[in-house]
């Protein structure tokens, strides 16, 4: 499933004194199989964009028609076969294929046991009523892939778990319906460094085995550089850049001008460049170290 957005615009509270233009002519394609990153400040439109992807925010059809009359470009948004600007689209089927993990997802847990909570999505999306055995199997699988021991946690109350564990239960509750695309809004926010690392490892496990495409929204440039195939930079409701990290983080000045950070590896590369040493790396720690060490070999 590909995500294709063309000329997508969205305004909150339109035609009122509180109107806020959140998306402004966004054009963006995410290919199947990508580990895609979305970068931008709070209020840059990135959250509004990802909420469009499973129909939580919809571009009103009336707006679409009106736009057409004005001969301005037609807004389109498709995810695989689903046309999200069409009212008749089966949004339940869409949401089954596009999983969405919100910021601080642990705050959406509600059931008495971890098992029940994780099963919530599975039962909602099942075409016919699933048997207990089917539910049990799906829940166990989902818990295992997020790195929790089903035997240990399934029967516990989700509120008795630690912060990091709660978050994983919440993620399990989304991936339990095996979505093709998994979208996560700042999956590592608020966790300590170790917790962050564990979450990113778990996302890579999911990306390989469960969900073909993973999209993360993140403020952490190191996270983007280490993990993503491509990343889009949102600013003022528009997509400013959409490039692989290798090229994106060469645009140091442009990113800093937007008030964004650059990864640590890019900072060191920049400092090296000032000293006449150019390292052509993809800004992952591994590649940076390999290239830097090779530099020494080259001199020898």
């Amino acid at each position: 499933m590909r995500i294709v957005a063309e000329h997508l615009s969205y305004t909150y509270n339109p035609r009122s004194p509180f109107a806020v233009r959140a998306l402004d002519d966004v054009c963006l394609t995410v290919e199947e199989g990508e580990f895609f990153g979305i970068i931008g400040h709070t209020g840059s439109g990135k959250s509004t964009f990802v909420q469009h992807l499973n129909g939580l925010i919809r571009t009103p059809a009336s707006l679409k028609r009106r736009k057409r009359k004005q001969a301005s470009p037609v807004q389109t948004l498709t995810v695989g076969e689903f046309d999200l600007t069409d009212k008749k689209t089966d949004f339940r089927a869409l949401r089954k294929s596009v999983g969405m993990v919100f910021q601080y997802p642990e705050y959406q847990l509600f059931a008495e046991t971890v098992k029940e909570d994780v099963a919530f999505g599975y039962k909602n999306f099942a075409d016919k009523k699933p048997t207990d055995a089917e539910i049990g199997l799906a829940v166990n699988e989902a818990l295992s892939i997020v790195g929790l021991d089903p035997n240990e946690v399934a029967g516990k109350s989700p509120f008795d778990l630690s912060g990091g564990q709660k978050r994983r239960v919440a993620i399990a509750g989304v991936i339990v319906s095996k979505p093709e695309i998994l979208i996560l809004d700042e999956p590592a926010a608020g966790l300590d460094p170790l917790g962050k690392r564990e979450i990113m490892e778990l996302l890579h496990r999911i990306h390989g085995a469960w969900c073909k495409t993973v999209v993360i929204v993140s403020h952490d440039m190191d996270e983007i550089a280490e993990n993503c195939t491509r990343a889009a930079v949102f600013a003022e409701g528009r997509v400013k850049y959409c490039l692989p990290p290798r090229e994106l983080f060469k645009m140091t000045d442009e990113l800093l001008a937007l008030g964004l950070d650059i990864p640590l590896t890019a900072k060191i590369c920049l400092a090296l460049k000032k000293r006449g040493i150019e390292i052509d790396c993809d800004f992952t720690t591994e590649d940076f170290i390999a290239k830097t060490l090779a530099l020494k070999g080259g001199v020898k």
Binding site: L56, G99, M100, Q108, A111, G121, N124, V174, S177
Partner: peptide
């Protein structure tokens, strides 16, 4: 929270009164 549960397939619109009330729990 409503959006998060909707994304997990929760349905707040259809069904009778009992179903609607139960849908509010999450």
């Amino acid at each position: 929270i409503k959006n998060a549960q909707k994304a997990r397939g929760a349905d707040f619109e259809s069904g009778g009164l009992v179903k609607k009330v139960r849908a509010v729990v999450p």
